[in-house]
Design a protein around this nucleic acid. Structure first.
Lengths: 185, 185
DNA sequence: TTGACAGTATACCGATCGGTTTAGTACGTC
DNA sequence: GACGTACTAAACCGATCGGTATACTGTCAA
């Protein structure tokens, strides 16, 4: 990844997320990054490929964030670690996610299932589900698969509703429900 | 609403939802509806206004659907009526919502808070929250406001996750969680 | 009978879209 | 000194974008 490509990816990440993918032209990305369109196309090949790179990069940051928050403190009961995911979400929303889940938003703009970005979207959700399942298994609950699914639903729901502004304390509410769910599992 | 305007609105509803708002041009809508661009602009004024009309129309259909399913059978315990909302969602997804919540999707494409469509999006979510609150109040739970919020989070989460294809039985799962939540309220 | 209204047909507007092409510069490595 | 690589500058491509203008037809009610 050359310095110019790095700048393009950073700018694309900001513009795509803030304005929506279709609303941003490659011309705007290139000029904002202080780069020629030729350089952009030399590095990424197409806008669609750049979109996929953008999503991949954001997914990486998201995973690192979650893992950092959940595993920051050394010894915590596995059951409580599941609740830390909700804290991670709340921080993420406050710091990087004012316009909702970038992957849900991208899915709305990429109806073609063959688009390279669609794989990244699926993998992002799949990873979180697997991560929750692992934590649930470590917590020794009866049905880790089922609990992980319920928690994923709560997380996605909290993300959407708090973004749409209908429910200000959505993440906190979801965390309470999650707590109750974990205790009875 | 003239016959031509009706056709435009119907076509716009299909194209906007299936392809995303920005991806659809007014030219395509007009020709698909068998109408001139002039007629489209005479009736709706601008693409942004048409977008708002599209959302409004879809919201109306959604509300009617929910109310029909929840209130179809005469005498049902109010607590069970809350669960019927999940059945309404499941039907809606199967029949009209393969690409996820149109309002969440539209929100992803309309970053400008002053866009006329944004009001419709907010009102759609607000209505559902109020409706859930009313049902919860009738069910005699301790904290209707809180239960309604939790259920809204579950509904939105189930909608997103089942659309993204990560969790096939998301709505059913959410309904189970809801049941547990209602019983302990 | 007149006029408002709903509509078609078609050409046009400037701007922007994603993407390509040609030419040339700076740098580092065999 | 030659070659590959990373980059800038700028013109260019056809297509499409949202929106407007002009001219004309049909219907219906006052």
């Amino acid at each position: 990844m050359t310095p110019a490509a790095e700048r393009v990816l950073e700018v694309a990440g900001k513009l795509f997320y803030d304005n929506g993918i279709h609303a941003v032209g490659v011309e705007a990305i290139a000029s904002e990054a202080g780069v020629t369109k030729k350089t952009l196309y030399d590095r990424f090949g197409s806008k669609d490929a750049l979109i996929a790179h953008y999503l991949r990069r954001r997914d990486e940051r998201w995973r690192e964030h979650v893992i950092r928050v959940v595993e920051q403190r050394g010894r915590i009961a596995p059951a409580r670690r599941l609740l830390l995911v909700f804290d991670a979400l709340e921080q993420w929303i406050a710091e990087e996610n004012p316009r909702g889940c970038a992957f849900v938003n991208a899915h709305a703009e990429l109806p073609d299932a063959a688009h390279p970005g669609r794989d990244v979207i699926r993998e992002q959700k799949q990873w979180l589900l697997e991560y929750l399942r692992t934590l649930a298994r470590e917590a020794g609950v009866r049905n880790p698969r089922k609990l992980a699914t319920s928690l994923l639903v709560l997380i996605e729901g909290a993300n959407v509703t708090s973004t749409l502004g209908v429910v200000p304390g959505a993440v906190g509410n979801a965390k309470e429900v999650a707590k109750q769910l974990i205790e009875s599992s």
